Simulated assay, not measured.
Amino acid sequence: MKDFTKITEQSSNHDGLENLSTRELLEGINQEDQGIALAVEKAIPQIEALVEAIYPRFQEGGRLFYIGAGTSGRLGIVDASEIPPTFGLDHGRVIGIIAGGDHAIRKAVEFAEDNPDQAWEDLQAFGFNEKDSLIGIAASGTTPYVLGGIAKAKEAGWVTGGITNNPGSPLALNSEFPVELAVGPEFVTGSTRMKSGTAQKLALNMISTALMIRIGRIQGNKMVDMQLSNNKLVDRGTRYLQQALDLPYDEAKALLQEHGSVRAALSAR
């Protein structure tokens, strides 16, 4: 493994934080945040390569897994949990797993990330096949839980991606498709829930949304397969149909309720 600079642990560009006013703190955080989107932009070729590798396998029924610890693990779970309501896919197609299990979503589980064998054990509960893909998420790029899972998945023939905020880290070097988001030191030194976590969230949004569009879960720019699980979404679907079919609101809503989805309603007309 080549040497690399762990940017995520470098000292903040700001000091004496305890002496700053609320306004000064907020302005400093915002100043640091302004570079996040640019860092993600630089990684677009890497993100593209990862999506292109996952796409044909996913199209054939493969699944996408995220693994991570702490903030990174929670971000993977958040992204996975939004796929069914937004795109109408089964909960078993995109799955987020966090070190320490579901309990760790709300409360940190000490040392859970330090076991290099645990991620693969956690993945075994889902079975696997050669069409599945795994994305490890770790700001440091050194989390044993994530590295161990990536190594085993590669051996099993999965596509492997790694989202990290330290270029040249072990996660970047050992993933087939690394995504390196170099956002620089955190406002609070080492607090990777801040810029690093925000960059990871942006990248995950891009990966899952692009993948869902590529497999046909969007028509035009509309979520035609979204689950109608609350009044807001029923209203949204109704307005989609109003616009697409030039119908009065009540007629569009009745059509939506009759067919159960925007896609089905559009296909029926």
Results as ranks from 00 to 15, higher is better:
L89E: 08
A151M: 08
G101Q: 09
N166V: 10
H103R: 15
N166S: 13
P170V: 12
R217V: 02
K42V: 10
G73V: 01
D3C: 08
K253V: 06
T5I: 15
A182W: 14
R63P: 01
L256F: 12
S133H: 00
P56C: 06
G220Y: 07
K154A: 07
I54L: 00
S208I: 02
R263W: 04
I150F: 00
E32H: 09
E9Q: 15
L204K: 04
G100H: 00
A199C: 13
V78N: 11
S11M: 11
I29Q: 14
S12H: 10
K232P: 01
G28F: 11
E110C: 08
R214I: 04
S208W: 01
D246P: 01
E9L: 13
R193A: 08
Y145N: 07
H103M: 15
S140Y: 02
L134A: 04
S191C: 07
M223Q: 08
S21R: 10
Q219C: 05
R23V: 14
A138V: 00
G190L: 00
K154L: 08
R217G: 03
A199F: 12
I105Q: 07
F87Q: 04
A172K: 08
G16I: 00
M206H: 08
G162K: 07
Q118Y: 10
G127K: 11
S133C: 11
P84L: 09
A156G: 03
Q200C: 14
K232Q: 06
S12P: 07
K201F: 06
A138N: 05
I98C: 00
A172R: 08
K201H: 09
A244I: 08
V234Y: 05
T71V: 03
R63Q: 01
A104C: 12
F58R: 01
T192I: 08
T5K: 14
R57P: 04
K2Y: 14
S140H: 05
D235M: 06
R269W: 12
K253F: 05
Y249D: 05
L17S: 05
P248N: 05
